[in-house]
Design a binder for these strands. Structure first.
Lengths: 265, 265
DNA sequence: CGGATTATTGAGGGGATTCAAATGGTGTGG
DNA sequence: CCACACCATTTGAATCCCCTCAATAATCCG
């Protein structure tokens, strides 16, 4: 509908940018004109298979990458070749904003597709122009970065101070909430136990035991070997999950919010 | 010198904003005019004693707080009243940017003075105007947020995947580098072992043992009971420290950079 | 069908925790 | 100026959560 409003011919890839448009709206980019302008600069790239890198140290540094479909993760390999997953990325998320603003940063951090993904790119040159001509756009990107920081803080807290079970439960809750926010209602989290381990700072073996505990406790489904949520409420309770750090509209949500938590703040 | 260039009377608190000016320059805010404009909107507040909150849930939500002198930390209390320190803050750092952009976020996160601090504030209303009239300012704040995210990622990685000794060593390295970046050359890190524990996700008892190990290994000074760096090189080596994530100019620095690390990236 | 990745289960070890107590340093007030 | 309280630091002992190692299913993909 957005595209129609500005009277453009629908391009063949119509719909491909819906996720990105939704993202910008959630970042409070109010101006429909600004939104349509930036969308026009997105080039849609070929699909990426699971396990392939979307952004790595060898990628050209002259463009911003946007995830349009699929699930990816930002991660880094350590000296002992263990892996830390910083964040999971969903349709609409920006993969490498840090490379645009602080190009010297995070040389080794890479983005890898976890499922089949499709991506778009915006040239850095174009972004320079867009930002100078549409200042509101900068504020939206800024919000995106702050949201990422908020997610990192929450994960830091979980890894640092919580036991394995609430930790794993929290990560699953987050993914569920983020999937909901982009209208993906599936109870299956498209993430392996290996990924959970690398994101949560646990061994795969222990994650497996925790997952089985979560199944016994009624939070996850016992029927599959995948991560399938059986009871969102039970999971959130075990995780002590407070989704406010994700800064999402409550519209779609029927999460239990702890009343006293709200009251004393 | 900056203030003189625009022909202003030097206010009584001349020099108080130097740290903030330095910060903005490090965030690549090139325009001296923009810089002077924003500095003019900073109100200097009274001093804050160690242990007192600079920003908490009861603070008015209508202003941005800037640390002008001293050391503070952004942290959050958990349900079991343990504490997670997200980041340490130094002169020039913004304490509560997140409250400006995403006011619903991180309700419970507070900023507390670790040493005697002095702070400044900018009203959110003024910030609204400043940002719309000086778009470059928004990019600088955006960079500040990305830098914070970078620091969070590094800490996440440390806590998640490294043993206690390199973990503690890394945190100390970071503080040393950040102090250097604002021209504070002291080898004493103004942080207690309790703070180190809360930042590193360790118990105080264990941090103490690690600190003693670091002293035996020649990284910290044996002469004091404070955290005093005896050998920056040794510490960085034990920490496997790569300061690039801090995005700092190398000007002031004589840190050893691992050559092969640079070569293969 | 074979190779690779993921999931699962068992056993044993270790790093960090918790509990408990003593020491040293600092500041406040009598 | 000392006494006392408070906090940070230090040390010891016992415990436990999670890890590593190892091996076996189950699943996916070409």
């Amino acid at each position: 509908m957005g595209a129609a409003m500005v009277g453009m011919m629908k391009p063949p890839e119509a719909g491909a940018l819906d996720a990105l448009a939704l993202k910008f709206r959630s970042l409070e980019l109010d101006s429909e004109a600004d939104l349509q302008t930036v969308l026009r600069f997105v080039k849609i790239r070929e699909a990426v298979s699971p396990g392939e890198n979307i952004v790595d140290t060898r990628s050209p540094r002259r463009q911003l990458t946007v995830l349009l479909a699929g699930v990816a993760c930002l991660h880094k390999k350590l000296e002992d070749d263990s892996r830390q997953i910083y964040t999971f990325q969903y349709p609409g998320d920006f993969c490498d904003l840090h490379r645009y603003m602080l190009p010297e940063l995070d040389q080794k951090a890479t983005v890898t597709a976890l499922t089949a993904c499709s991506i778009g790119t915006i040239r850095h040159d174009d972004l320079d122009q867009l930002l100078s001509q549409h200042p509101k756009l900068g504020l939206a990107f800024w919000r995106a970065s702050m949201l990422e920081a908020s997610i990192l803080r929450e994960r830091l807290l979980n890894i640092s101070r919580r036991a394995a079970l609430p930790r794993v439960a929290s990560i699953i809750c987050e993914q569920l909430a983020r999937l909901e926010a982009i209208n993906i209602k599936s109870a299956v989290i498209p993430i392996t136990q290996v990924d959970l381990a690398d994101a949560g700072g646990l061994s795969v073996v222990h994650v497996n035991r925790i997952v089985q505990d979560l199944r016994k406790l009624g939070a996850l489904s016992k029927k599959t070997r995948t991560i399938e949520v059986a009871s969102k409420e039970r999971l959130a309770q075990l995780a002590n999950f407070d989704r406010r750090y994700l800064n999402m509209p409550d519209l779609l949500s029927d999460w239990k919010i702890d009343i006293e938590e709200l009251a004393d703040s």
